[in-house]
Amino acid sequence: MEALKQELKEKIIAALNLEHISVEEFDDNETLFGDGIGLDSIDALELIVLLDKDYGIKLTDPKEGKTIFQSVETMANYISANRTK
């Protein structure tokens, strides 16, 4: 799980061009949207693409995203339970 969280942080930083954050500073439980990392709605769409492209997970219910994308911790838990690649 630790390796997946590390990988996720690297992928999120690269996919969303988060040049102001390093993997070391990226806390597992930090809120991704709003006051935490500060992601926006376009970033949410990029995260949906990332789940599909890298882990073979297709999110069909947008409401799911709110729970899944709370933090790297919640994303990693969801990925490890649902990944197809």
Binding site: L16, N17, I42, D43, L45, E46, V49, D52
Partner: peptide
């Protein structure tokens, strides 16, 4: 086929 929303905007 993975169109990027961040590029599209």
């Amino acid at each position: 086929y993975y169109p990027s929303p961040a590029v599209f905007v």
